[in-house]
Nucleic acid binder design. Sequence first.
DNA 1: TCGCTGCGCCAGCTCACTAA
DNA 2: TTAGTGAGCTGGCGCAGCGA
Length: 234
Amino acid sequence: MPRNPFRYFKTSPEIIQLAVMMYVRFPLSLRNVEDLLHERGIDVCHESVRLWVDRFGPMFAGKIRIRRASYLRQITQWQWHLDEVFVKNNGETHYLWRAIDHEGEVLESYVTKTRDKSAALRFFKKTMKRYGAPRTVVTDRLRPYGAAVKEIGNIDRQEVGRHLNNRAEKSHLPLRRRERAMLRFRRMSNLQKFASTHASFHNHFNLERHINHRQTFKLRRDAALLEWRQLVVG
DNA sequence: TCGCTGCGCCAGCTCACTAA
DNA sequence: TTAGTGAGCTGGCGCAGCGA
């Protein structure tokens, strides 16, 4: 029988879940979330929100990943789009590697200090360990990708093109918005943890509003919210 | 023991002010 | 008009102390 992770917390799991969702999903600061909860008659300090996000964010993200696992197994072997983006971390430049599938689902996020062959190789192996080998890999012209793909033995599956990888480039935008709201990340471990959590939340709540009819979008939004609320129960 | 709070620190950003 | 500077603000982070 697994222990209830909320057993010591004085605040109800529903409120904790709401606060975590607000902070991770939307570009809000800890103090913004504190104010919004206060508006609903919930009095907590911003530090409690930080504690909850740190403790329960990865837990919720893990549950989302487990629930989407069967869906991901069906589709993720089609095509991967890989891209890396630099992120300032306490003044130092780090690189956030991300793998996106052909439907815009964020498969993996990985933070490294360098942008070389070994970093690309680690990222590849980590992603393939979780999802298996893709049919095709789309990358930009960054050389470490070619070297890593060659070492893995998938060179015939790599597609390189200036505009082919727009899907991956565009997928950075939500994280960039979030980063701007946070002003910066301070620690590499926090960046890695937040990037993974943010990706899971984004996958769950990304309902492709722009390509669905309003009615379809509303149904999918209700379903996502219902599933989200069941995470605490399940 | 552990959640929660309050406080202070640090780094980055914005904007008003000043000098050239 | 433009570039440089510094004060003030914002938000993340660390930590000590309180209370259940």
